[in-house]
Write a protein that binds this DNA or RNA. Structure first.
Lengths: 337, 337
DNA sequence: CTGTTAGCGCTTTCAT
DNA sequence: ATGAAAGCGCTAACAG
């Protein structure tokens, strides 16, 4: 393990260049008010020495760590992975680095995460809060004392900026689309009812159910095959049966798809299917799956830029931004054959 | 944006507790050699103040940032996402935090990434190197002067530890399995031939082809549908046709699956299919896909622990670890119906 | 345009 | 068992 001797410091550079440390400091901070030849000389010494400023020292002095914390439930979930990816790109444009912490949607974990970020004195925080009303969380956030942007799900109160998907409209969009296909027996399936996103989606569904005068068929929590199977079977046996399914999140969509396939139900001829959230193989499956697609990249860049603005003091009031979703029409809804 | 006043320092704690700063320092470092009552008193003050030590100051003093860098091609790729997830878990067990940087497999990006990590004085680095021979990279790594563990693909030379999948054997395993099913016209499909992993897999295939006396049918780069379609069509038209496909990476497996499906080729009756790397819907597709599964979690925890050992000076020589893959048997190979 | 100097918050001898 | 003081590498007045 290559153990270099101690790394060169700013003073080393100064000494070798025969100048004061202030001048070197000026150079690494943009080189204002430094004579051109001097600048060149110093830069030469810096690269010869392989000098890189010590961020710890700068943080201590500037009270800015050039890091932002990112707390997400899981990095394995494609939605959050995509989010993290874009956030990282945007952050690095301004020389910020991401401290990644996953919470697994567990409050205790999140508490620990926050302590860690506190110690590292992150300049700001992007967080996907677990539950809505998390009391202790907001407390601790206050203590963190840095700008915070809540993503995907809001934090209670209007203290913090939030960047959300317009789940309500997105759900309406999907339901309306099914209605336009003449579907009236639409099973809305799945999701953790404690999640804000799911609640919003359900409300969106209900609004369409009400205005179109449909029978309300909403079932929660169909993440595993057996549950989905049971729920779908139950509804199919009812009088009137079923002519469409709207999966409220990836897992329920995929499970529904499997169930329909295994029961030999022709999709979309007999039952239409639309899912919430795009996923890698949605276009590969036969029939391909029509989905409501959240603009993840836009959410991520918006949230990150907003956070950076807060950090720079350019935006001081809490913003509330909703990003619209769009429908990706494929075969399972009945549009194509 | 909750703007707290400046955060309490160790001195604040000391003053309020009426003790010297050394004692407080002892407390946050485990509380050795501190009288029990004193310890309790100080801890009380700390929690009242909401004190958290400033990592920047500690880094400066200890020459340890408690951060490790993670450079991966992309966090959106499920394989790397899973890797990052496990690495984060393991790192946090020892109070280390992950600085996440994505390289997109571009060498320039990687150079910049390294400079960033240098500034932040990471204590160690987990890296998935882009190309094998990357000259400048190794140079810069030397300058980083911290322990490095290469993952998934090796770095040239034996300076750095590496944790790899045993791609050679894994490929052999898949090929042998197909041979056991009586398949002899096996198309090996896809992948970037410049990648170490792909090269190893190809060699594994070749060894089985040679020992089993099969016709060699190896085609590179089938990440898009059209290419896969063309390559498969070509082989099917040849005399002898095709009785199996081994996809060397996710994309080529999925594309092959699509092509077979669209051409109405019965899988596995006429053509068997095995893929390299498991993926989310491999078990959902009909037929479900048999795959060679890399032990990502094991690779990640092994690599991270090894890195931590290097950091702690417990392991000083470069290790070379290969982790075995396993076959997940599903329907597409012909085992089940 | 350039240098001197005093800390930022913490750890660490070395005394006591 | 506890404290005083020096210094980690950098920046920001303030002089010159």
């Amino acid at each position: 393990m290559t153990k270099g001797k101690t790394r060169p410091t700013l003073h080393d550079v100064a000494r070798l260049a025969g100048v004061g440390s202030t001048t070197v400091s000026r150079v690494i901070n943009g080189g204002e008010h430094v004579a051109p030849e001097m600048l060149a000389r110093i830069q030469k010494v810096m690269s010869e020495l392989g000098y890189e400023p010590n961020q710890a020292a700068r943080s201590l002095k500037n009270a800015r760590s050039k890091t932002i914390g990112l707390i997400i439930p899981s990095i394995v979930d494609p939605f959050f992975a995509h989010f993290a990816s874009v956030a990282e790109q945007v952050a690095r444009e301004e020389d910020y680095v991401i401290l990644l912490l996953t919470s697994e949607d567990r409050a205790e974990r999140e508490m620990v995460d926050l302590k860690i970020l506190e110690r590292h004195r992150v300049d700001g925080l992007l967080i996907v809060p677990p539950r809505i009303g998390a009391k202790g969380l907001v407390e601790q956030l206050k203590q963190l004392a840095v700008p915070v942007v809540a993503v995907d799900r809001p934090l209670s109160g209007q203290t913090y900026s939030r960047v959300l998907c317009d789940n309500f409209r997105a759900a309406q969009m999907a339901m309306s689309h099914l209605v336009e296909h003449g579907r009236r027996r639409i099973l809305v399936l799945g999701g953790d009812p404690r999640l804000y996103t799911i609640q919003q989606r359900v409300e969106g569904c209900q609004s369409v159910i009400a205005s179109a005068g449909l029978d309300s068929m909403i079932e929660m929590g169909a993440g595993d095959y057996e549950t989905a199977e049971a729920l779908i079977a139950k509804r199919m046996k009812q009088k009137g049966g079923l002519d469409a399914i709207f999966g409220l999140y990836n897992q329920s969509t995929i499970r529904s798809y499997e169930v329909l396939q295994n029961r030999g139900v022709p999709v979309p001829e007999q039952v239409s299917l639309i899912g919430f959230d795009d996923f890698a193989l949605a276009s590969t499956l036969r029939p391909s799956i029509t989905v409501v697609n959240q603009a993840v990249a836009e959410m991520a860049s918006t949230a990150t830029r907003l956070l950076l603005n807060h950090i720079h003091g350019e935006t001081t009031s809490a913003q509330q931004i909703e990003i619209a979703a769009n429908l990706i029409v494929r075969q399972s809804c009945g549009c194509a054959q």
